[in-house]
Structure formats: C-alpha cells, structure tokens
Design a protein around this nucleic acid. Sequence first.
RNA 1: GGUCGCGUAGCUCAGCUGGAUAGAGCAUCUGCCUUCUAAGCAGACGGUCCUAGGUUCGAAUCCUAGCGCGAUCACCA
Length: 634
Amino acid sequence: MSLDNKLTIKTLELLSDFYEQAIDANLIQFQKTRKDFEGDITLVVFPLAKIAKKSPPQTGDEIGQLLVDKIDYIGSFNTVQGFLNLVITDQYWLEELKEIETVDNYGIQPRTEQKLMVEYSSPNTNKPLHLGHLRNNFLGHSVARILEANGHEVIKTQIINDRGIHICKSMLAWQRFGNGETPENSGIKGDKLVGKYYVKFDQALKEETEVVLAKWGQGEFDVENEVMAEYQRLSLAATEKEDAKSRKGILDKIKKLANNSTPIMKDVKEMLVKWEAKEPEVYELWEKMNGWVYEGFNKTYEAMGVHFDKLYYESDTYLKGKKLVEQGLKDNVFFQKEDQSVWIDLTDEGLDEKLVLRGDGTAVYVTQDMGTAQQRMEDFPGLSGIVYTVGNEQDYHFNVLFKILQKLGYKWAENCFHLSYGMIDLRNDKGEVGKMKSREGTVVDADDLVKEVVKMAQEMTEERGHIEGMTEEEKNKLYQMIGLGGLKYYLLKVDPTKRMTFNPDESVELNGNTGPFIQYVYARISSLLRSAGNFSAQNIAEVDGLIDVEKELVKKLVEYPQIVIQAGEDHSPAIIANYIYDLGKNFNSLWQNVSVLKEENQAKREMRLILSKNVAKVIKSGMYLLGIDVPERM
RNA sequence: GGUCGCGUAGCUCAGCUGGAUAGAGCAUCUGCCUUCUAAGCAGACGGUCCUAGGUUCGAAUCCUAGCGCGAUCACCA
C-alpha cells in the first residue's frame, strides 16, 4: 500500500478518536511536500480546522504531535500556515527499498478478469504510412502494454481499410495510367507504388472537375436534372452571400457537386459496385494491388517494432455490417428513404441523421465498423471491451458508432472506448504551424523518418565513442534502439489527447527530456553493476542515514505502481514517460554527486548499488511499457 | 452557424479529481571531466497561466461570457 493510503487510514482512525467524532475521509488530504519545505508528505489541515475549532496552524501542530506520538515511522513535523509537513524516518524508506528489491515484476498489477482488445494503426491501403500513423501505432502499442501491466488480457489488433471507394481510385488510376508498373519491375516499395496512383487519380479528377465546371458555367448540362437544379440553386445562393466565408462554403459544395459529376468519378463508383459483386477482373486487380501494399506495410511495421495478434479486413466484415443494417431496419432502429438509402435518426441524442447504407446498396465507413465490432465479439467470447486508437478528427464518428451499437442492443457497446489522440502539426520555413498536406508535399513519410532517425543516432553515437569492441551487428542494433527509442519517446511523452507540433530536430535530440537520455541512464547503471562485484540487500537496514538525493530516489521508486495504474486508467503513456524521465534525472543527480563504488562504508555502498539496480529495473520496465528497448552499453 | 477540443516562459511541453513562492527540456549565459559512461551535473536568465466576471479560507485547475486557434457537421475513410 502506498504511504498516502496507509497514512490516510491511520490518520482517520486517530483523528476520529482524538476529536471524538466521525470524520469524513475526504477531509484527510495528503500531498507531496514541496521541495522548499522540510518533510516528505504533507497534510492539508484547512479542512480539519473546523473540526478542531482552532486556527489552521494550531490544528496542524496539534495533529502533528499526535501523529509523531502514535506512528513510529513519522520522525518529526513542522507546520507552515495550514500545511502540516511530516518527516518520514530513513528507516522507513530503507525498508521500502528492500521490499522493492525483492519484487521481480515490480509495478505490474495482479491479473484481472478483463479481456480487452486494443485497435491501432488501421491504415487505408491507398497510401503509405506517415508521421500520424507513427503516433497512432506507438500510442496503441504502448497502451496495449500498459493495460497488460494493469493485469488485463489484451489482444492487439487492427482493421485494415482494404475496401471502399478510395481503394478503387488507386485501382482505376493504375488501370488507366499504370502501363503494367509493379513493385518488381519499378523497384518501388508496394505501398508507395499504390500511393502514387492514388495521387494520379486525384490529379485526373481535378482536371475533369474543371472541365465540368467550365461547361456548367456556359450552361451546358449533360447531367441529371436534380444535379442541374442543385447547381443553379447553389450558384444563386453564392451570389447572394456577402461574407467570404459562407461564399466559400457554397463554392465548396458546388465543387463537390462537379466532382461527383465527372466521368472518372462515375467510373470509380461503378468499379466499387463491381467489386462488391466480386467481378473477377476488378477483384483480381484489387487482390494484386493490396498484396503490394501489405508487403510494404509489413516492412514498415517491422522497422517500427510494433506487432498485432489478430488482423481484421473490412472486406471480410462489411457484409456483416450490411446484415446488421438489414436486421436493424426490421427492428425499426433504422429507416429507409425513397432512394433506398438507409439511415439512423440520432437527433434525440444531440447528433444528426446518419447514413448507414448507400442508395446503391454499398456499405459506408460506419457500416463496416458495426460489422467489425460484432465479428470481434464473436471471435473472442468474453471480450469486455474494445479500445479504438483513432485520431480526434473522428470523435463524431465514434460517438455515432457507439450510439448505433447501443441502439442495436449490444451491451458491450458501453465498454467501447475511443482513444482519441491529437493531430500532429508541422512548422514550415516561415515558422507557421499547420497540418501535413499531401498536396503541398509536407507529409512526413514513416519509412523516411525512421531511417533518418537511425542514421542520426549512428552519427551521434559514433561521435561519443563509447562503443569500442562492439561487433558491427551489435552497433547496428544499438543505433536502431537509440534512433527508434528517441522517436517513440518524443511522440509518446506528450499527452495523447493533445495535438502536438513535430520538430524534426527535437525528435533526434539526445539531451534533456528524451529517450536516449533515459537509455543512457540505464547504460550507466549497467556499467556500474558490471564492475560492482557481488552485493546484496541484507545489510541495508544498517545504513545510518540517507542523503537527500538517495531519499528522493527511493520515494520516486515507491511511486511506480501507482504510475502504472494511473497510466492505465488514463490510457496515457505520457504519464509513464514523464515519470521515468524524472527518475532518470534524479539518478543522474546521485551519480554526479556521490560515488557508489568508492564508498567506504560497506552498508552504504551496498545500499547505493541496490538503489541503482532498482532504478535500472524500473527504467527497463517503464520503457518496455512505451515499447522502447534499453541498451547495456551506449 | 451547431457541436466538440485547445490557449501556461522566446520555442516544445508538464502541472488541471481546487492547496504553499506555477515546473521541465530546448535556446542564451556561468561553473564542473586525474574520480563508477559529461548523451551528465550545479547554477543564472526567462511568466498578465488568453481576457473579464463568478464560486471559496484558497483558482493555472471548477462555472459563465468574450477573444483567438483547430476539428467536425460527406451517399470520403
């Protein structure tokens, strides 16, 4: 039990007795003592002053005396204003250290009954992975490990968006402009090659859209009457609007209308229908191109060091979604419009009407998500919930999805959680911050970044020169570990829910609050332990006093289990990251200020070795939770 | 326009379930390698916690309004 909890229970008991009345547990508020004051833990006495019927300082003194008298590990106290600072004895901390030393899986929580699925990555198969996917993957992978450390059984998964109109776009463009280009004959990585044709489609679409708009402008309409009417309505509205913003909104709508009226767009839609009908020509092309993509993705995942227990493909689950729509239609959860499209009315939930099946009978995004969720529940009986690692731009979508699942009557929908993380912004040469834009060529490619980061790690490590005697293979492994560790840490140390600004220089930085800084602490301790000889925790209790840095370190170690729990509850690797950084910093302070091996007092020397060993143990454990490896030497 | 989110040092971020004089890193400047790995340590400089009200013993933290930024409101995913 933590000191905080222990003290709260004891104090509650003592105070109830002392003041002869029942005391609300919420009035007992312990917090860490601020550095500027003497003490380890502080009781906030303001809430208790009323009960004592004395001023806060008097109350503090009164309670402080009581606690010192009754609790043996409280050595002394001081009251500053309404804050009662308690000094815990060194013996107590030494016992704690000894305890930590005996636990192998320190910080890891006992098994629970919960079985959770964590979904992350979930890319579209029409473009290569980029920086945003890196944040997604590292986050999901780390959260999976954190949940495991909290005792839950975890299944790591992803849903591969391998079908849909966007895939058909790449396919169509390849058919038209590809001239039989393949990864083999071009040497281009599979996912990159398919991405290339997705871009080609976009260009073609843009050109055709302009043609359509030009025709419309001259009054030539070879489209359905409704489209023409809609265009005329919008054009009129655009001329009436005064402010530029709403004008732009209408112009965007016109553009979209034109977009959808292009021949190429019609062809793509047709292709999707053919695909759903499994027409061999289309289906084979689809299989071929997706095969290229998977080959490319697998290389990227391997380089990133993330993996999955089970893969789902939308092409397998969207039919299940369609069945759910059918059933829901019968049960009056959904309703059908004249054009045969199927909708759900969520206006009573504060949301809108939402399409669940297109008029032509093909599935949309949410259709397949419904099917996927149900499939998962069938595949893993007893699954308690699903964690969806998906960007916060999809907050609305998941809101809708969970509501739909609830309305369909699935109890487990309540345990689905959208791990909604912030977008990554980039800073351009002018210092402006903004999103990655493929059109402006600012998308940071995942493969390129990983390669770059490892290369930088190599250069910087060679400069430092701590690696003589390593084989080439060991060296390469180390560069990989440092580069990737730095990148992962950089992306994970920020609160996942917040958007962040990517700075390429900081992502490869070795100094300060970085992954390599922490890895370095681990390597230092490893080096220390290598030259320490034999030691044990037996004589720790004989140490006659702890210096500040030592005590700080023990206190920090004691916090770890709570940190793991907190990180699990909040789904936040950042909590782990910030904690290990603090721990590492504290250790460096010890390292720089005292010598471990040259300490003459034997008990003290052993205590410091045990302390160091356990700092390393916790660093390794915490870094594992972030998906980062630590080196014995660097 | 509706909904949701964000606004803390020059920059990137902690702190936000209310507690003491708001913390780190980067950048700038000082010191410290004959000593277990200086990828380090010690220190200096740097703040209208967006603004205005409110709640209370106490507000960066909670509430309301305003300003600014972003996301979303697709028969895209």
